[in-house]
């Protein structure tokens, strides 16, 4: 989805090298160390290669001046080979020192560094807050066991707090990746994996599915919203409530449209009879930033288009086009917009 401004919140550009969370910061340090070693190694080796060849070319040019017959060719060549004799006597020492010794020291150092970084990335909090993320083709179900509610395609968490994501999948293997916060972790059917996340800034982070999971792998994205503690508590409090019962006309009609349509087979709106499980929980749809797992910003126009035919935006996704009349759609949108 385009990380356009959504209300007052701006989505951060995702970047491995500009970390916004503890895990990503640790990894970014490792990245810079490795990058500088890599640059140094490449510079030394390529310089040596160029020097070896350039000096040889210069010598060959001198030879040409001395012996204008030119480079040895054909049968004369074999008689003159090997024209320049043996490799230098120190060849073995060079190979053993520069090819084995020095790299071995560097690599063992990097190995120890990498292993200790690896250890530091583990979940460290005593009783971390747990959020369950369940992968579906092609969206994310996000459960807050403490609050007892379920949302979709966005993970909301308090800043400066280590959160443990517990990951699994109901169909194929997915992988959750929020570059600014931490590395990725796979969602594997039949297993539960863990990923610690800790954000240092109250912003919105871009995330994606990183394991190929079928047709719409590309548009299986998510956002992570980090909030200050008070805002987070208010958000969680709101999420744990069922949907408001609409009183006035349009929204009430919209609810009827919802309940009378195929929507209910796949979606849940807590507090109503809609209790399908195949698609995202819509109880607080209007509070979310995106539609279709990051496919579109959550605006009224986009939502209407998505309902009528989501296949144009995200071809192959599991939501069929809805046959709704204009007024029906309008009232449905009014209702959905009340689901703050």
């Amino acid at each position: 989805m385009p990380p356009e401004p959504t209300g007052a919140t701006t989505v951060q550009l995702a970047s491995v090298v500009r970390p916004q969370g503890t895990g990503a910061a640790l990894i970014a340090d490792l990245w810079w160390v490795m990058l500088w070693f890599a640059v140094a190694v490449c510079a030394v080796v390529i310089t040596m290669l160029i020097v070896a060849i350039a000096r040889g070319r210069a010598r060959a040019a001198e030879d040409q001046v001395a012996a204008p017959a030119g480079l040895p060719r054909t049968s004369r060549a074999s008689a003159q080979f090997p024209a320049t004799g043996q490799p230098p006597t120190w060849a073995n020492s060079l190979v053993l020192s520069a090819g084995v010794g020095v790299p071995a020291v560097i690599l063992i150092g990097l190995l120890v560094y990498s292993l200790s970084a690896h250890r530091a990335l583990a979940v460290t909090a005593e009783r971390p807050m747990t959020i369950e993320v369940i992968g579906h083709q092609w969206w994310w179900e996000v459960r807050y066991p403490d609050g007892g509610f379920t949302t979709a395609n966005e993970v909301v968490l308090p800043v400066d707090t280590q959160v443990r994501l517990e990951l699994t999948s109901v169909d194929v293997i997915h992988s959750l990746w929020v570059p600014s916060l931490n590395g990725k972790m796979d969602l594997i059917p039949g297993q539960v994996t863990q990923l610690p996340l800790e954000a240092s800034e109250p912003t919105v982070f871009w995330g994606a599915c990183a394991e190929f999971c079928g047709t719409q792998h590309a548009k299986m994205n998510l956002v992570v919203r980090a909030m200050r503690r008070a805002a987070f508590d208010a958000w969680a409090e709101n999420q744990s409530r069922p949907a408001l019962q609409p009183e006035d006309g349009a929204a009430a009609e919209g609810l009827e449209v919802l309940l009378g349509s195929a929507c209910v087979y796949c979606h849940t709106v807590r507090g109503t009879n809609a209790s399908g499980r195949a698609g995202p929980d819509l109880t607080h749809l209007a509070s979310r930033l995106t539609l279709g797992a990051g496919a579109l910003p959550n605006t009224r126009g986009n939502l209407g288009g998505w309902i009528v035919n989501s296949q144009t935006t995200k071809p192959g996704n599991r939501m069929p086009p809805m046959q709704l009349s204009g007024p029906e759609l309008q009232s449905l949108l009014v209702y959905l917009e009340t689901l703050e």
Binding site: V45, M48, L49, A52, I53, R55, G56, R57, R59, A60, D63, A83, T84, P87, P88, W90, A91, L94, V95, A98, G99, V100, P103
Partner: peptide, 16 residues
């Protein structure tokens, strides 16, 4: 690393 430096050593001082 071993192989790369073996190639460099082979070229070193030659007339490639």
């Amino acid at each position: 690393g071993t192989q790369v430096f073996a190639w460099i050593a082979t070229l070193w001082g030659s007339r490639p």
